[in-house]
Simulated scan of single mutants.
Amino acid sequence: MLETGLVVAAYTPPTVEDMHLPPFFEIGSFAFGKQMLLVLISVLVVAAIFMVAARRRAMVPGRLQFAGEMGYGFIRNSLAKDLIGVHEFKPFVPVLFTCFYFILVNNLWGSIPFLQLPSFSHAGSAYFLAAFAYVFWVGVGIKRKGLGGFLKAMTMPSGVPWFFYIILIPIEFFSNLVVRPVTHALRLFATMFAGHLAIMVAASLTGFLIADLGGIGYGVSIFSGIFGIFLFFLELLIQVIQAYVFTLLFAVYLQGAVAEAH
């Protein structure tokens, strides 16, 4: 609280309610809001960009086709091929490709003026995506190794004396099959939520200093404004990194599901 003469100005930081706006409409327990709209738009954006990029399929690609091929090659080679292996990666390229660009676009909504809401700052979206990844790689592992073989691979690391399994099996089961999907989602949700809320605080504080304090507030607002710009570009970087990290972990889990035990 700052006091100037008889005028008292109190800064009220933005809350979660300010970040997550009320829904556009509700039908029973179902609510459709800005976040869900952005998720749907992201599907159209990703599909449209790569469909247009692949439309001509010229031997000498134009700029859009070249960018599309670069984007596809990045996921195919750097994530799928390098992590899953040259003999196993091909069936999983489409799901990893879709996962990365779907998350990337939904994260980048938070940095686009007037939209300014990363879709995965809602916990439900992040946990749903992590649940999909979890069911997918567990299903792949069971299909490849059978239920018993998959559980053995997840809970009984090779090269360990048998008596250690008494301790290791419950720890590995809890870590790989219970904690893993939770942390997979939480990492994405927490970074998107915290980063966007921090930008909102910096922006609202700058506005408060300029509009409500005047005088010294104008000078101090320069520092909060610069800090807000720094947070914006930091969040932009994190938005890209988190799309990569989520997809990378998905690829690592798939590699563990298809890898042969040694």
Results as ranks from 00 to 15, higher is better:
G71C: 05
L237W: 08
L108G: 03
L151R: 09
I49Y: 12
A211Y: 06
A203R: 14
T183L: 08
L168D: 04
A185H: 04
F233H: 10
G159A: 08
Y101I: 06
A54T: 07
F227L: 14
A251D: 01
F114K: 14
F250K: 02
N107F: 02
L248P: 02
S29C: 04
R76Y: 02
F25I: 11
F136Q: 00
G110N: 01
Y165S: 07
A261M: 15
C99G: 03
G146K: 11
M154T: 10
M51T: 11
G146V: 11
Q35E: 13
A31C: 01
V178H: 07
S121N: 03
I167Q: 04
K90H: 07
Q242V: 04
L79A: 04
L40F: 07
E172R: 14
L147R: 14
G148S: 14
A211D: 10
Y72K: 07
G141L: 08
M192C: 12
G159M: 07
S111H: 11
M59L: 15
V240W: 00
P91G: 00
F102H: 13
L6Y: 07
P113M: 02
T98H: 07
S78P: 01
F163D: 14
I229P: 02
R63C: 05
E3D: 11
L21C: 06
L236P: 06
L188K: 12
F173M: 14
Y127I: 12
G148E: 15
F50K: 10
L108I: 01
A48R: 08
K145N: 14
K145M: 09
I84Q: 00
V105P: 05
V220Q: 06
S121Q: 06
T206F: 03
F163H: 15
Q239M: 13
R56H: 05
H262F: 12
G62K: 01
N107S: 07
A203M: 14
I166V: 15
V182F: 13
G215E: 14
P118A: 06
T183H: 14
F150A: 06
P14W: 00
G195S: 07
I27C: 08
A133K: 00
L115V: 05
K34N: 04
V39Q: 08
V252E: 12
F24K: 10
L64F: 00
H262L: 13
T4G: 03
A203V: 15
A259C: 09
S78F: 03
A185M: 08
I41E: 01
W162M: 15
G217C: 04
L249N: 13
S221T: 03
A243K: 02
L83C: 07
L236W: 04
F132P: 05
F164C: 12
F174R: 11
S121W: 02
G28I: 03
V8D: 10
A211Q: 13
W109M: 05
T206L: 08
L213W: 01
V16C: 06
A153L: 11
I216K: 09
V240E: 03
E17N: 09
F230H: 09
N107W: 00
E88A: 08
K145C: 06
Q239Y: 14
D18Y: 00
R144G: 01
S204E: 13
P13V: 01
A251F: 02
M51N: 09
I199T: 12
G148P: 04
